[in-house]
Design a protein around this nucleic acid. Sequence first.
RNA 1: GUUGCAGGCCGCGCUAUCGUGGUUCCGGCCUUGCCGGAGCCAAGGAAAGUCCGGACAGCACAGAGCAGCGCACCACCUAACGGGUGGGUCUUCCGGAAACACCGGAAGAACAGAGAGUGCCACAGAAAAUAACCGCCCCUCCAGUCUCAAUGCGGCUGGCGGAGCAAGGGUGAAAACGGGAGGUAAGAGCUCCCGGGGUCAGCCUGCAAAGGCUGGCUCGGGCAAACCUUGCGCGCUGAAAUGCCAAAUAGGCCCUGCUAUCUGUUCCUCAGGAACAGUCAUGGGCUGCUCGUUCAUGGCCCGGUACGUUCCGGCUUAUGCGGAGCCAUCCGGGCGGCAGGGCGGGUAGGCAGAUAGAUCCCGGCAGCGAUGCCGGGACCAGAUAAAUGAUAGCGAUCCGCCACCGGCGGAUACAGAAUCCGGCUUACAGGCCUGCAGCUGCU
RNA 2: GGCCCCGUAGUACAAUGGAUAGUACAUGAGUCUCCGGAACUCAGGAUCCGCGUUCGAUUCGCGGCGGGGUCA
Length: 133
Amino acid sequence: MPVRYTFKKAERLKKRRLIEQLFAQGRSFSHPPLRVYYSIHPVTDQHHVAYPAQVAFAVPGKYFRKATQRNRIKRLLREAYRLQKHELYDYLRQQGMALHWMIIYQGKEMPTFEEIQQKMQAVMLRMRQIQEK
RNA sequence: GUUGCAGGCCGCGCUAUCGUGGUUCCGGCCUUGCCGGAGCCAAGGAAAGUCCGGACAGCACAGAGCAGCGCACCACCUAACGGGUGGGUCUUCCGGAAACACCGGAAGAACAGAGAGUGCCACAGAAAAUAACCGCCCCUCCAGUCUCAAUGCGGCUGGCGGAGCAAGGGUGAAAACGGGAGGUAAGAGCUCCCGGGGUCAGCCUGCAAAGGCUGGCUCGGGCAAACCUUGCGCGCUGAAAUGCCAAAUAGGCCCUGCUAUCUGUUCCUCAGGAACAGUCAUGGGCUGCUCGUUCAUGGCCCGGUACGUUCCGGCUUAUGCGGAGCCAUCCGGGCGGCAGGGCGGGUAGGCAGAUAGAUCCCGGCAGCGAUGCCGGGACCAGAUAAAUGAUAGCGAUCCGCCACCGGCGGAUACAGAAUCCGGCUUACAGGCCUGCAGCUGCU
RNA sequence: GGCCCCGUAGUACAAUGGAUAGUACAUGAGUCUCCGGAACUCAGGAUCCGCGUUCGAUUCGCGGCGGGGUCA
């Protein structure tokens, strides 16, 4: 079966309560210009097998005052995540774990797509390393 | 042709690959739902600022006044507006040789009231608002002086006092209708001529604002984006409004069922009670069923009674009879507990509100126009931690460089729906159209 | 998605519509000192931007820009 680079609603972190929990209790690390809040736990629900991670993206309005700029960055982040998520998904399935996380862009400059892709790759690698320990 | 100003309009295109939201249809999975496939649709002229006005919703509401807020030449348009259209008035600029005025053109205007009241007008200046400092002029008195022999009269100069006047006065943003003549002691719209303003009356034009003509009265500044006065308008709150459905958990109310018995051991104030273990019953979990296993509960009070037992009574062959008391594992009731079911409030969450409308396009008619009416056609985002995208190639336009066709490099703005609509304001690469003005070329 | 408030030197604050926009700290120069500090003297430095009202605007009006607060 060929790999499909989709990004469905079930792969997004949509519950307000879960997001607030992430900020209040979740762990975090930084990989400039990205900052990640995450919460990892064993699989309890069946649909976590199909989509072992729920993610949300954010760009604060401090450095990007215009909504079009924030939209552009979020779309780049989403595109990079969509194209690179499968390795992480396989790993999580293998470990039997589920992940809630939020990726925030904290830079001041408008990034290019290549930069975002490299940073996203690094963030996913780091996520795996944290789970290894 | 070019430059400037004003107004209006457009505001990158195509292809490929991988994706996103909505919707219609088809198929699959065990149903809600999810997944797959196909088709269609998917940001703006400002979606922005949130400055006005409405629609819609909830609450409030006898009428009137006050307060507060807003608006302010007139008429019209509109669902409404602080918006728009047309007209008027004023100001500025340009032209007509030409100050004022008049005529033509362009641009602009928060354009009611300062002859209701209060207040303010720095500096300068005599004075900044019921004018009178210097002045001007007249009169009385006094002094000096000239003419004269002297006084007086008269002339000139100066002073005190009284009366009149507002021409002139370095200022200032602004100075008490402007120019000319008459008049007067000096003067003054005091009078006259020309001109300007205000106001009232009449007539004409106009729906009106207003304009024209005639006549009367009149001529002491500015500031209301100072307080204010007058006229008109305005309930408050806003989609996080509002309505509906509603899991789990906790709590409330109602109904139903159960709340047992025996054995063993130990202890005690041995009638009786307590603890532990087992048995049993009910309910739940472990798997859909059986078995098995495991967990929870089986507590208390009141009334009655049997057996038993204590006391009393007399009788008697009798451990039999009668009365009183105690007590159940029996009966009835209550509280509590457990389990199941139901009801109502309501949280998470979901649905409606919410996308077909003061809509868009084309044509015709009415109107100077804003706009309205009629006919035909179209369906044009509906998300909700929030979609409308990413990458590559080709093309289009513009800019720069090399500069011969051409090539190379760069740029393509401002900006992202959040209930909807009408305006206003602000931002904007580049391009198109129309009008006006200047310059220049050709016929 | 609404609503409210505020912008003055580098910083914290003043200023009826009327000057040369003031005070303190900070900055710079000088005096003093062997040097520095303190003290004293002097200087530079600002009304967020634009348009309007007014003779005149930090102040009044309108429009932008920026900052802060608040409502679930």
